[in-house]
Amino acid sequence: MSLLTSIPATTDKMPSGAVAKGERRRELAVFLRSRRERIRPDEVGFALGGRRRTPGLRREEVAQLAGVGVTWYTWLEQGRDINVSAQVLEAIARTLRLDRLERNHLYTLAGISLGPARSDCAALPDSIQRMLDAVSPYPAIVLNARYDVLAFNDAYCKVIVDIGSVPLEERNILWLIFVSQDWRCSFVETETMRMHMVAGYRAALADHLGEPEWQDLTDRLLASSPEFARLWEQYEVAAPSNKIKLLDHPKLGLLRVEPANLWLTQLGQHRAIVYTAVDAATEEKFRILMDS
């Protein structure tokens, strides 16, 4: 049961905007604390001596380095509804040594836009399916920001998972990887891939806090997969990767592929992923499988 559906019927319903804002403040609080705790005091000029109740920097040390008031920063990390400027966020981002994606995540959670809002589109034009079919024998799919599978080609079904046989409500890559047993092949570096996907989902979630569909998926994953829950608690954020992957297919053996992420800009946060062959052996195995 999601957090939103568990609210008693007698409770006054909050406006969706207020719910999203509250969720962002809570996420911001957790994110700041997790980034603060990963920095060793001696890395930024503070002595290691003295009794420390938590790992990493203290709140007052972050405030000092960022040039903000201790009370103000404490309120920020507690998720209170306070005014935050881009200038102060930039100082905090530098102090916490955030990379580009983490910095963008910080701005999103704080409700400060870094650019024009992105549109979304639920329906895919027929040209997208034709594109996926045209890249065969390479496996290809289209995902939205929540990792829902919106389109796929036959090669993806034969190499990775037969999406056509998966119930519509389970056509989500996170669900398939962490809960389902339907994969036709296994990623050799499964742990690394799972960590990166959870981090990517966490980053995307910042734009959709308070939305029932996202909350429901998160709740179901946490309830169904201890591994997802463990990685979720690490609070990492990441962008899609083009790193070469090794797949171990039950019929084809080892496959070396490189995912190409093609952003479908007119469709907002949708992207096509084409798994291209890295070497001639993988290319030949793809063609053999599609001809069989």
Rank of each mutant, 00 (worst) to 15 (best):
S292K: 04
R35V: 03
K251H: 09
L143M: 11
V84R: 00
A86L: 00
S241P: 09
V188T: 12
D148Q: 04
V149M: 12
S113P: 07
Q181G: 08
R118C: 09
L255D: 06
R202S: 06
V188W: 04
Q78N: 13
A145I: 03
V62N: 08
R40F: 05
A134P: 05
K285F: 00
T108D: 04
F31V: 05
L89G: 01
D81Y: 13
R130L: 14
D42P: 02
P116I: 04
L176A: 06
A272C: 13
V62T: 11
A223Y: 10
L267Y: 14
A239K: 09
E283N: 04
D291E: 13
E61S: 01
S127C: 14
A277Y: 10
E169K: 11
T10F: 12
M131P: 02
T5S: 12
Y156F: 15
V142K: 01
P250N: 06
N104I: 03
A272V: 12
E170K: 13
L98M: 08
L262H: 13
Q215S: 15
P259T: 15
I160R: 07
E227M: 06
L246D: 06
S165Y: 04
M197G: 05
S16V: 11
E90L: 01
A280V: 15
E27Y: 07
Y275D: 09
Y73R: 04
R271K: 09
P226D: 05
D148R: 00
G268A: 14
I92Q: 03
V274I: 15
G67T: 10
F228G: 11
E61Q: 03
E284Q: 15
A86V: 00
H105K: 02
Y156R: 03
A93C: 08
R130F: 07
Q181L: 05
L247V: 10
G268C: 11
R171Y: 07
R59E: 03
L3S: 01
R100H: 09
L109E: 11
L217Q: 10
E60M: 00
A110I: 15
C185I: 04
R100N: 06
V44C: 10
M197A: 13
R220M: 14
E43V: 03
R35P: 07
L101Q: 12
N261L: 12
L150Y: 04
A93R: 02
R58H: 03
V62L: 04
L221C: 11
E23C: 11
A66P: 01
E102R: 01
S225L: 15
G69N: 05
W75C: 10
P240F: 12
Q129A: 13
G111L: 02
D148V: 14
